[in-house]
Design a protein around this nucleic acid. Structure first.
Length: 299
DNA sequence: ACCCAGGAACGCA
DNA sequence: TGCGTTCATGGG
């Protein structure tokens, strides 16, 4: 077992990432330590002084491969400041970025992301996390030492062996049959999720939506958070409400209209703008009557 | 008891 | 196309 670490700058904010609703397995151990099974490995992020933190990966990889894995997962090869600069002309996005600087779109495993967002329909983030954990517990536990053990997300063979009844027992509710069927189909057709990433967003969306249980919104989340489609804007209830309030879109406008408004306005990283708006609205609008109030710069 | 949660399938107009 | 209903489960 190898242990590889490096320092992260303030453009990786693990508090915000862990609670942003794009990933479901990061756990807060204490105010300075977050931990998550990612892929087959275990990751830790320890906060240091001055907005810096150290990420550690426990794996059997060489240092170079481990580094590449982390760069890839956190999207560290992207120019964070440049992306932020391209979207904070918008006053509402600017407020959201100021509150959550270091929040970033991750590049996650497609299979785990498909399962996560299938579970997310008509569900809470907390509940999705619990279902994912139960599914992972069907996998073999990896024990690093007395302090560190974890269940990696299962591979497709393991997922396909689980029956509808198994998924129901894991409290996946009516989504159980979707999960069972998609696992069986991916395995049977030998679908290579890494390869289909290269398709255009429109073709990929069509392909994903052929699966029962994946609609437009879930497809867009899968593509944004695990397939490098940074321009996509998933049409969730928060963004629908926020868009009407913030940008004065018609009350009965279609999702397509909202999505095109975002792409027109924010361009290649519209999905990032969306994540900041979603994150901010979800976290702060419970304490105010309307969404717009929490986007007004209160400094 | 009721309502909602990062929706989607289904039936019907 | 568009709109209303229904779908498990958990929490407020």
């Amino acid at each position: 077992m190898n242990e590889y670490s490096f320092t992260l700058n303030n453009d990786v904010n693990i508090d915000e990432i862990a609670t942003s609703g794009q990933c479901f397995r990061w756990k807060k151990v204490n105010s300075n330590l977050y931990i998550a099974p990612i892929g087959s490995y275990l990751l830790e992020v320890r906060k240091q002084v001055k907005n810096k933190s150290v990420v550690t990966i426990y794996s059997d990889m060489t240092d170079k491969k481990a580094k590449d894995f982390l760069l890839n997962y956190f999207n560290l090869n992207l120019d964070y400041q440049k992306i932020i600069d391209s979207i904070i002309f918008d006053p509402y996005v600017k407020v959201a970025v100021d509150k959550a600087y270091g929040l970033r779109v991750l590049n996650q495993d497609p299979l785990e992301t498909i399962f996560s967002f299938m579970l997310s329909q008509n569900n809470t983030v907390l509940n999705v996390s619990r279902c994912i954990e139960r599914i992972c517990e069907k996998n073999e536990q990896i024990v690093l030492d007395k302090r560190l053990s974890y269940f990696p997300f299962p591979n497709i063979e393991t997922l396909a062996k689980l029956t509808i009844k198994d998924y129901e027992e894991m409290k996946c509710g009516y989504r159980a049959r979707y999960l069972n069927r998609i696992a069986e189909t991916i395995l049977k057709k030998k679908m290579n999720l890494e390869r289909i990433k290269k398709l255009s967003s429109d073709k990929l969306r069509t392909k994903l939506m052929e699966f029962d249980g994946i609609g437009e919104k879930v497809a867009d989340c899968i593509m944004l958070y695990s397939m490098r489609k940074s321009e996509l804007v998933p049409m969730d209830t928060w963004v629908q409400k926020a868009s009407i309030e913030l940008y004065g879109l018609r009350k009965n406008c279609t999702n397509k209209e909202i999505r095109e408004f975002y792409i027109q306005r924010f361009g290649k990283y519209a999905g990032w703008a969306h994540l900041f708006i979603f994150n901010h609205a979800r976290k702060y609008s419970k304490q105010s009557k309307n969404i717009k109030d929490c986007f007004v710069n209160t400094k």
